[in-house]
Each structure stands twice: as C-alpha cells, then as structure tokens.
C-alpha cells in the first residue's frame, strides 16, 4: 500500500482474494505474517483517513491469473502452477 508505482513508473495494481478464502489466509499468515483481519484493519486505517486506496478484489484463482496477466504493473498470488508466459513467478524467500 505504501508504494504506488514500480521503479519504472508503472502504477502498481494489487489483486487479493476475500478474507475468508483459504488462499488469502495462507498468503496473509505465511507470506505477510499477519492475520487477514489485521491486514484489513491496516488497509481500513488508510482508506478512511484518505491516505490510501484498497486493493482490487477477485473471486477466483482463475480471475486472479487473468487479471494479473492482462493488467500492466499487476501483482497477486496463486496456489497452483498455472503460470503462463504473461506472468512472472516471484520467489518468496
């Protein structure tokens, strides 16, 4: 939420799934190290003070893949090896 563009100036577009999805819970806890409700509160503190905007929400993993593949500067996560040539996989630790 703090950086709004990549170093080359392309706006960052973050995609997430719903708080209750298993994938989002895993992403929050295992990658970010916080619970989904803590992440949501941190977003809300910015959204309702006017200092930040909410990430875009997707409903399915396929939608996540499609959106990340077709949106410039997009970032997201998935659970499966559904990677194609339009998406780059980023190693986590």
């Amino acid at each position: 939420m703090r950086m709004t563009s990549w170093p080359d100036g392309v706006p960052i577009q973050v995609f997430v799934m719903g708080d209750k999805t298993r994938l989002h819970a895993s992403f929050s806890k295992e990658i970010l190290g916080v619970f989904p409700h803590q992440l949501r509160r941190a977003w809300n503190r910015q959204i309702f003070a006017g200092t930040g905007q909410a990430p875009a929400k997707v409903d399915t993993e396929q939608e996540m893949l499609d959106k990340v593949a077709t949106t410039p500067g997009a970032i997201g996560y998935t659970s499966e090896e559904l990677i194609n040539e339009q998406i780059r996989k980023i190693a986590v630790e």
Partner: peptide
C-alpha cells in the same frame, strides 16, 4: 503460494 507479477507494463 506463488506470488505473481504481470510482465505487462
């Protein structure tokens, strides 16, 4: 979990 980034842009 796999983090993804678009190559577009």
């Amino acid at each position: 979990l796999i983090l993804l980034a678009s190559l577009l842009g």
